[in-house]
Computed example of a mutant assay.
Amino acid sequence: METQERETAKPRNQGFLFGRVLEPAVARFVGRTVHDDMRRMEEIVRRSDLDWTVVRPGGLFDAPRVSDYRTGTSRLPGRYTARCDLARELLRQAEDRRYVHRFVDVRTTEGTPSFVQPIRKEAPGKWVRPPADLTPAARGSAAAPA
């Protein structure tokens, strides 16, 4: 595990489409409420008297084993964090006081999916079909006329 401590506002090598178009659009429109909630939560944690460390993963994906992932106190390049890498880092943070009162980014550096792979995997089961309890039959109402 390599620790990176450089202070940069935006990660490099994100590509023009993702770094300049997609990510800002998602943050501004689609994820606005989530990002606002996250900022409020982080401010509450920051002002507390507790010993805290906030771990910030990228988009989560499954991997067969822990990789040589990266951690840092500034935003790291990369979009994804393997669940096993995040789990390893959470355990490490529970035992190590190095990052108390800090925010830690975690990014997987090998075997990461393409931008569309997680969408293809997650979307069919969550976005394409409505949950059974939201269908007209489950609500006890007739289907809308055609």
Rank of each mutant, 00 (worst) to 15 (best):
M1W: 12
T3P: 06
T3F: 11
T3V: 15
E5A: 10
E7M: 05
E7N: 13
P11Q: 04
R12K: 13
N13C: 06
Q14G: 14
F16S: 03
F16P: 02
F16R: 06
G19K: 02
E23S: 13
V26W: 10
A27C: 09
R28Y: 11
R32N: 04
R32L: 03
V34M: 15
D36N: 10
D37N: 15
R39Y: 03
M41G: 14
M41W: 03
E43F: 02
E43M: 05
V45M: 08
R47M: 09
R47S: 13
R47N: 14
D51G: 07
W52P: 10
W52D: 10
W52Q: 10
T53G: 12
V55L: 14
R56Y: 07
P57Q: 09
P57I: 04
L60Y: 12
P64R: 12
V66Y: 00
T71V: 15
T71H: 00
T73F: 02
L76A: 04
G78R: 06
G78P: 08
R79M: 12
T81G: 06
D85K: 05
L90Y: 11
R98M: 05
V100R: 15
H101D: 13
T108G: 03
G111E: 08
S114M: 05
S114Q: 09
F115Y: 12
F115G: 02
V116A: 12
V116D: 04
Q117M: 10
Q117P: 00
Q117T: 15
Q117C: 01
I119T: 04
K121C: 00
A123M: 12
A123Y: 14
G125W: 06
K126G: 00
A137T: 12
A142S: 14
A144Y: 09
